[in-house]
């Protein structure tokens, strides 16, 4: 593979990833935000494929498609104005957040550009998928199994947290909308 098409593809996918990432927080509808986030993730997955991590990139894209749909369903269940196209600005500590984001970006990019990264590129990119498979079920099997047990524990924990009924009765017994102002009576 020659360098120019790869560089062009990288530039395009990077632009999509970053611009879509910004648009996530600059759009009126949460569903649109989810679609932008998915676009950002898909572009990152594509960059990972360009970097030679074919399996990881494709798995990321596969995972995120399901995740976006879960997000959409959660929005419908709980959020106000879930699929709406009305203007929506729901932010707090906006300036601090912008400053923190900018500082994080500059610091991390600075670290990256400061150099010192060793130059040892992948020798055989075509073998990456097979290598990972042998690693998963070979030297790193314990890590792999631990990840699996972690996910199992997460599943049990998530169900326990989200269960409608616990040992002390219904989870939503006597729940009510809290007041938006500190000294107000709660909304019924």
């Amino acid at each position: 593979m020659s360098d120019l098409p790869v560089s062009l593809a990288f530039a395009a996918f990077s632009a999509v990833a970053v611009v879509a990432g910004i648009r996530v927080f600059r759009t009126d509808s949460m569903v649109r935000a989810a679609f932008y986030l998915l676009a950002s993730f898909a572009a990152v997955g594509a960059i990972m494929v360009l970097l030679g991590a074919e399996f990881l990139g494709m798995v990321l894209i596969l995972m995120m498609a399901g995740e976006m749909l879960v997000m959409a369903i959660v929005m419908v269940m709980y959020m106000m104005n879930p699929a709406g196209l009305n203007p929506m600005v729901m932010v707090h500590q906006h300036r601090t957040a912008i400053a923190a984001g900018a500082v994080a970006f500059l610091a991390l990019a600075g670290v990256g550009l400061a150099g010192g990264v060793p130059q040892r590129p992948v020798t055989n990119p075509g073998a990456a998928t097979g290598d990972l498979g042998r690693e998963l079920l070979g030297n790193s099997m314990l890590v792999f199994q631990t990840a699996g047990v972690t996910l199992l524990g997460t599943m049990v924990g998530a169900i326990a947290i989200a269960a409608p009924r616990g040992r002390f009765g219904d989870a939503d017994a006597d729940s009510q909308e809290p007041a938006l102002q500190p000294d107000e009576e709660p909304e019924a």
Binding site: L38, L62, A65, L69
Partner: peptide, 8 residues
């Protein structure tokens, strides 16, 4: 991934 994106 293609099948997963069908839902999108």
């Amino acid at each position: 991934a293609a099948v997963a994106f069908v839902m999108i």
